[in-house]
């Protein structure tokens, strides 16, 4: 049983299907890539799986059908995501950004905090930051970091919620080749540690190197799926990317 799967997932914008009848699966502990040219419907797929756009079809996560759940409920259930433009909370420090994702509010806790705010234990969150070399920035504001660091904070924040599956929307976009490779190693490390990941990225080199399995979208339709080796050889994929196979290993962000 896959930890996350969709069947017949369809998203319609103004009469047009941005994603059409998509079936995909992420197995436990697997790193699955979702690729395709611009406008193929990759981000829309993540939005639909996490409840940010209305969609038809069945989404199963952790053994339950979750179509009727709100984004918040899905996130609390362990379906994490990152954003293309990191979308950090600009008024909170890096550590506080992580705390938001890690901590739950209860009425009792709130009333207690009114009188004496708890000193929440942040050692786990500091460990997450340290694993991404961000521990020195814990008390800085997002706007004080570089673009690459902000993207990493976005990843750290989603990890802080201890997700079962993490949907990553172009985490390497805007990073240089070296940063991108480093990020790839880290994502692979997370998956090897037991996390299941669905990864969108434009960097074909990165995706083809680290993923276990790939789905290829074009104009909202699934045009191919398979292991990286199968996808490399797929005529339709090569067609959709117009010979971008030569760009393998380079950064085409």
């Amino acid at each position: 049983m896959a930890i996350l799967s969709s069947s017949g997932l369809t998203v319609t914008f103004g009469g047009k299907n941005a994603v059409e009848s998509l079936d995909l699966k992420v197995e436990q502990g697997q790193l699955v890539g979702l690729i395709g040219p611009n406008g193929a419907g990759k981000t829309t797929t993540i939005d639909a799986l996490t409840g940010f756009v209305p969609a038809r079809g069945v989404v199963t996560f952790d053994g339950k059908e979750i179509e009727s759940q709100s984004s918040t409920q899905r996130a609390r259930g362990g379906l994490g995501r990152t954003w293309q433009s990191s979308e950090l909370f600009d008024d909170l420090t890096i550590l506080e950004n992580l705390q938001v994702a890690a901590e739950r509010v209860t009425v009792g806790g709130f009333i207690r905090d009114l009188f004496k705010p708890r000193n929440d234990d942040v050692s786990e969150l500091m460990a997450i930051l340290a694993s991404l070399d961000l521990d020195h920035s814990a008390h800085l504001l997002p706007t004080e970091l570089s673009h690459g660091q902000r993207k990493l904070v976005g990843v750290a924040r989603s990890l802080a919620a201890k997700p079962k599956v993490l949907l990553m929307d172009e985490p390497a976009a805007g990073l240089d080749t070296e940063e991108s490779q480093e990020l790839g190693t880290r994502i692979r490390g997370l998956v090897d540690g037991g996390l299941s990941v669905l990864l969108i990225d434009h960097d074909m080199g990165l995706v083809l190197t680290i993923c276990d399995y790939l789905y290829v979208l074009d104009f909202g339709q699934l045009i191919a799926e398979g292991t990286p080796a199968e996808i490399r050889a797929d005529e339709k994929v090569i067609g959709a990317y117009l010979g971008q196979r030569h760009a393998e290993g380079e950064n085409d962000g």
Partner: peptide
């Protein structure tokens, strides 16, 4: 700061 990102963080 960001309602969508907050919802995605479980808020």
């Amino acid at each position: 700061a960001n309602e969508r990102a907050a919802a995605a963080a479980g808020v």
